[in-house]
Design a protein around this nucleic acid. Structure first.
Length: 858
RNA sequence: GCCCGCAUGGUGGAAUUGGUAGACACACAAGACUUAAAAUCUUGAGAUCGUAUGAUCGUGCCGGUUCGAGUCCGGCUGCGGGUACCA
């Protein structure tokens, strides 16, 4: 029995595709266009199995669409700026550029071995000056359109290393290298006005019907549009230097009579003003700043407040004064940075009121409760009901009360109905080297001035040092010295670089015309965009996807495209998990070191120590539960790896990587090889026609063939690759079982060729090899997708389950169009049914044609 | 904390979207072939009781809607993703 040699065969076909420029994409093609894109990788150094999964899914779509006659664009690039390159520079004394380009070279080689149908001529890396220079041009366009501004904003500050830390670098409130308590500090930074597009970005979600509902919902909640009341509290005897008006925003104006205090953010101007003359307040504000900037850290921190001594008048009653607290849970970035609190209707306010012994007055009576007897327990009541203790609102429904308060505020002129968004403007400044330099110059006379377009790109200097913490661009002896583009006098370059999310917010446009000496050719982009199918991890559900949507709209606004939404179809794939192993010393062990003893127990091949299995977890270097795709491809070939990552797990869910699974895939590869090399009966010659009249097993196999074409096509359309795989296994089983019969030689050829074409997108090398063996001198990559003959995909009869009182008791085979009465009569007459209906009265019979009969009898 | 998911045999999962739960695969067991091993082929299997025909139970937990619930609704538990400077 001969064996399929994956390694040699795969290399052969990859060379044929490359030499023949098989996957070169033409911008000028007459064919309909289809743009498939997977989220481009960060060049970390090695390709991960998660990458293989992601790019294989995209490749199946690309090859399938190609077979359907589309001009497919399927490009690849590198999200190449970011912190790991700087960390490598600090730890291993390599230049970030060398580290990054080496990684790219390695990963490109690895990806090429996967056999992806990619047009490598379009490859780009975001750290190429040709790329980031165009990004700087876009930045200036946005600046000129008023979409960019500077403001003071908070960063994590490491007081020992004197450097800005990323959230990731803050561990339990401490700097990851220095171990110092992190504080928040303000810096002047660059912002993009994404909030100008809040409404559009929210409404645009409605048109994205090929996006997962969960992603749309997450984005909707992130944008967080709310309607509420904005009004000013009047401060009682406001001290000098403090405005008498304290603006607040609330989404629950109906709870205004349950108000028991006001709370302002520690970063609120009133707090700052009070701190000037009050060291205690200054100390409290300082304390509030002893933590990182993440929402998680702020929300999870113990709720603390400080009574400022200030009071405000209740808007409906000048004799009612509320105390004003500074509270560590009030965010300066949301609303006005000040709130009124109703402890009876909000958990956080309730906890705070309990802690500081502030009044808790119930104002909503839950539906069904008795007004006289109602008391609030140990918890606030957050639901709807009827207003109580609320003066003119008493007796109203909460919803009506909300409107009534706003109406009253507007009538009396002290407040207004206001739409508010949770979404904040996008801060893009990073105090780091390995990113796109922000193309601006600071001039003492002219202020902040954009670099002239003809002077772009503003290139990063090569000679930088990472010996001292902080921004190497800031430390560089000469780089920041320049002249003002406006007045020509000596001036200083901006040393901040851009958030790497900026780089990934338009790369899909650059792919359309990667050589353009402008960001992209507008006409070509308008032809290709939107991306028809975008595939990537769920972890990008909010930030990356929202920023890319914003960028696309902003680029339309500055006239560079007419595209509104960048991604027509979105698919979010799951992660790849692997079991963990620990040896008897408690060390994590790499899977390739695991060996099995005869009694089934595990040991590690290097030290011989016994090993136990741990939890299944996301593959990570620290847990050592990683598998290198190179090893798999070397041993089994790319097709086996591709087939395995598509099998079993639904693509949106996590995939459990197992050695047994990969072997199963490998066996299937061999099985297909045998089906062509040693078919169960001799195949009819190539190009022979299938006889029109068939019966028996030959007809059955032919029907299976066409049902499979139909099913696999639908599965791939819906990206249900695991179902397509299962269906193809069944098809292979049917083909293997073929026995000599009239017309079978022709039917078996049709079936075998169909199988090859259907597995083609998933296992392209094997498919090409088998296609050639079957006598074809064309490429599968250039062969049309098989068409199902509809008449062969339907059966004349259907099998129906017959239930008595919801339990299946028998099945019947009936003609597809049999009427309900006849089915009912047949069902009632079954012996297995009578056994359960005898002695009972048949009360009801439900017949669902083609599915089920349910007899209710008692 | 908040937002969003997910949970089905020993394992990964399927179930025409409210209609026969467990397709397909992995692992396992028995058998065939083989000097032997590998490979391959055949057969078996959710659990419990039973030799068996079969009966009962069964989709994380508690409750509800329905002739009928893995699927819909309410309440939990556990795990995962995001939380604006990881990408």
């Amino acid at each position: 029995m001969s064996r399929y040699n994956a390694k040699a065969t795969e290399a052969k076909w990859q060379k044929i595709w490359t030499d023949g420029k098989t996957f070169k994409t033409e911008n000028t093609s007459d064919k309909p266009k289809y743009y498939v894109l997977e989220m481009f990788p960060y060049p970390s150094g090695r390709v991960h199995v998660g990458h293989v999964r992601n790019y294989t899914m995209g490749d199946v779509v690309a090859r399938y669409r190609r077979a359907q006659g589309f001009e497919v664009m399927h490009p690849m690039g590198w999200d190449a700026f970011g912190m790991p390159a700087e960390n490598a520079a600090m730890e291993r004394k390599v230049h970030p550029a060398d580290w990054t380009y080496d990684n790219i070279a390695n990963m490109r080689e690895q990806l090429k071995n996967v056999g992806l149908a990619i047009d490598w001529d379009r490859e780009l890396a975001t750290c190429d000056p040709e790329y980031y220079g165009q990004e700087q041009q876009i930045f200036i366009d946005f600046f000129n359109a008023g979409l960019i501004y500077r403001k003071e904003s908070w960063v994590n500050w490491d007081p020992v290393d004197n450097t800005v830390l990323a959230n990731e670098q803050v561990i339990d409130g401490k700097g990851w290298r220095s171990g110092a308590e992190v504080e928040r500090r303000q810096l002047s930074q660059w912002f993009l006005k994404i909030t100008d597009f809040a409404d559009e970005l929210l409404e645009g979600l409605g048109s994205l019907d090929r996006w997962p509902d969960k992603v749309r919902l997450m984005q909707e909640n992130w944008i967080g549009r709310s309607e509420g009341l904005k009004f000013n509290f009047e401060i009682v005897d406001a001290p000098d230097g403090i405005d008498t008006k304290l603006p607040v925003y609330t989404t629950r104006p109906d709870t205004i009579f349950g108000a028991s205090f006001c709370a302002i953010s520690a970063d609120h101007p009133v707090a700052a003003a009070l701190a000037e003359n009050n060291p205690e307040i200054a100390a409290f504000i300082e304390e509030c700043r002893q933590m990182g900037t993440t929402e998680e850290a702020i929300e999870k921190a113990e709720k603390k407040g400080f009574d400022t001594g200030l009071k405000v008048y209740h808007p409906f009653d000048k004799s009612w004064e509320l105390p004003v607290y500074i509270a560590n849970f009030v965010l300066m970035d949301y609303g006005t940075g000040a709130i009124f609190a109703c402890p009876a209707g909000d958990q956080r306010d309730f906890d705070f009121a309990t802690k500081y012994k502030l009044p808790i007055l119930p104002i909503v009576l839950p539906t069904g409760e008795d007004a006289g007897a109602y008391e609030l327990g140990e918890e606030p009541y957050l639901g709807a009901g009827t207003m109580i203790n609320s003066r003119f609102l008493d007796g109203m429904d909460t919803k009506d009360a909300l409107a009534a308060v706003i109406d009253r505020a507007e009538d009396e002129g002290w407040g207004e109905r206001t739409v508010n968004f949770r979404l904040r403007d996008w801060g893009v400044s990073r105090q780091r080297y390995w990113g796109t330099p922000i193309p601006f110059v600071h001039c003492d006379d002219c202020g902040v001035v954009p670099v002239k377009s003809e002077d772009l790109p503003v290139k990063l200097p090569d000679d930088v040092s990472f010996d001292t913490p902080g921004n190497p661009l800031e430390h560089h002896p000469t780089w920041k010295n320049t002249t003002c583009p406006k007045c020509g006098k000596p001036a200083r370059r901006e040393t901040d670089t851009m958030d790497t999310f900026v780089d990934s917010s338009w790369y899909f446009l650059r792919f359309c015309t990667p050589e353009a000496d402008e960001p992209f050719d507008t006409d070509v982009v308008n032809e290709w965009m939107p991306v028809n199918q975008y595939i990537g991890g769920v972890e990008h559900a909010i930030l990356h996807l929202l920023y890319a949507r914003f960028f696309t709209r902003a680029l339309k606004k500055v006239g560079r495209t007419n595209v509104e939404e960048p991604f027509e179809g979105l698919f979010t794939q799951g992660m790849v998990n692997h079991i963990t192993y620990k040896d008897s010393d408690g060390e994590w062990v790499f899977p390739e070191l695991i060996r099995k003893k005869d009694d089934g127990s595990l040991f590690r091949s290097d030290s011989g120590l016994s090993v136990s299995e741990g939890r299944v977890e996301k593959m990570s270097k620290s847990k050592r539960n990683v598998v290198d795709p190179d090893d798999i491809i070397d041993q089994y070939g790319a097709d086996t790896a591709r087939w395995f990552v598509l099998s079993d797990s639904p693509p949106e869910r996590d995939l459990l990587w197992t050695e047994a699974g990969i072997e199963g895939a490998w066996r299937f590869v061999q099985r297909i090889y045998r089906m062509v090399e040693e078919p169960s009966i001799a195949l009819a010659p190539v190009d022979s026609a299938v006889p029109e009249s068939l019966e028996g097993p030959a007809l059955e196999l032919r029907k299976t063939t066409h049902k499979t074409i139909k099913g696999v096509t639908t599965d791939i359309e819906n990206l249900h690759f695991n179902k397509a795989v299962a269906r193809l296994y069944e098809f292979a089983n049917a083909i293997s079982g073929a026995k000599e019969a009239d017309g079978m030689a022709e039917v078996l050829r049709e079936a075998t060729e169909t199988l090859i074409l259907l597995v083609g997108p998933a296992m392209p090398h094997l498919a090409e090899e088998m296609w050639a063996k079957l006598g074809h001198d064309t490429l599968v990559a250039n062969t049309a997708w098989p068409q199902a003959i509809e008449a062969l995909t339907v059966d004349a009869t259907v099998k129906m389950a017959v239930q008595v009182n919801g339990k299946v008791r028998d099945t019947i085979e009936v003609a597809k169009d049999m009427d309900k009465q006849a089915i009912e009569a047949m069902a009632l007459d079954l012996a297995n049914v009578k056994k359960f209906t005898d002695g009972n009265t048949v009360r009801k019979v439900i017949v669902v044609p083609g599915r089920i009969v349910n007899i209710v009898a008692n």
